[in-house]
């Protein structure tokens, strides 16, 4: 069993190397397992191709697969960076965070964090926010609806004792706040336009209903109120908490508007 593990480790080291195949077989990651001279002898030529050219077929396909998988989870990021820069991003990302799972579902988990740390891809803070939004959408897409429970039914209009009323919140809800308006940016990118990248705070709710993912842009007071309701607070306490975090009470008009948004988007329902 000594030969097979060595051969497999060598082959993998060459395949995941970002340089040419000639560079890859000379890299320390490969020569640890097989010397360059042994590497050439390990493979057979074909009628049309030399051994290393054949290995290069596999090496060439690796970044394409990673590109495709990450672009599926981060279409906005891929569109913003463009094909070449996104490919560059993919190679540097998987060099640090290669797939360690049987599924691609986890490959992109650390993209927002990676963007923030490397700072190689500008504008860094904007891209990290955009990636965080796209990550949340992927995670909500994957949520187990059987475990999360059904979406709440629409709230009944009962006038009595509104302050002690509790509302059920969409079980798949994710509330996100950003330094950049990445929701509108994502819309722009999807329609082939250039998004605004100046800092502008934004708040977004992402949730799923009947296996479709919905993204709702919120105002700040809506974000604060929904956050308080998510903690299971009755409406009175939720309004007080939102007011405290807002620095001033929410106006009646703002509360009315918030409830219209929450119910129209089915973000909350009967508790």
């Amino acid at each position: 069993m000594a030969e097979l593990p060595r051969l497999e480790r060598w082959m993998q080291a060459v395949i995941v190397h970002p340089g040419s195949v000639a560079e890859a077989v000379r890299a320390r990651s490969a020569t640890r397992h097989l010397q360059v001279s042994d590497a050439r002898r390990a493979l057979l030529p074909s009628r049309t191709m030399a051994p290393l050219e054949r290995l290069a077929i596999y090496q060439g396909m690796y970044p394409l697969r990673m590109h495709e998988a990450l672009a599926a989870d981060y279409p906005g990021l891929a569109a913003f960076l463009g094909h070449e820069r996104f490919s560059d991003f993919v190679l540097s990302y998987v060099a640090v965070h290669p797939s360690r799972s049987y599924t691609f579902a986890h490959l992109g988990h650390r993209v927002p964090e990676f963007l923030r740390k490397t700072r190689r891809f500008a504008p860094t803070a904007f891209l990290a926010d955009l990636a965080r939004l796209e990550r949340a959408m992927t995670e909500v897409f994957e949520v187990d609806e059987e475990q999360a429970g059904p979406p709440p039914s629409p709230p009944r209009h009962v006038a009595t004792d509104w302050a002690s009323r509790r509302f059920a919140v969409s079980p798949t809800l994710r509330l996100l706040s950003f330094r950049y308006a990445v929701g509108p940016a994502l819309d722009a990118l999807k329609s082939g336009k250039r998004p605004a990248t100046r800092p502008r705070a934004s708040w977004t709710a992402v949730h799923r209903r009947r296996y479709s993912v919905y993204r709702v842009e919120l105002r700040r007071e809506e974000f604060l109120l929904l956050g308080a309701l998510t903690k299971g607070r009755p409406l009175g306490a939720a309004l007080r908490e939102a007011a405290r975090r807002n620095g001033k009470p929410l106006s009646p008009a703002a509360v009315t508007r918030a409830f219209r948004t929450f119910t129209a988007e089915r973000l909350i329902g009967e508790g």
């Binding site: 030969e3 593990p5 497999e8 395949i15 596999y58 998988a69």
Partner: peptide
């Protein structure tokens, strides 16, 4: 095939040498 080693997954179907050792394994 094998798809990766040392905890990694290349998500490719990589060939293996056809030997007695591989067969037993």
């Amino acid at each position: 095939c094998f798809t990766g080693v040392s905890g990694r997954n290349t998500h490719d179907l990589l060939p293996i040498p056809y030997t007695e050792e591989t067969l037993r394994h």
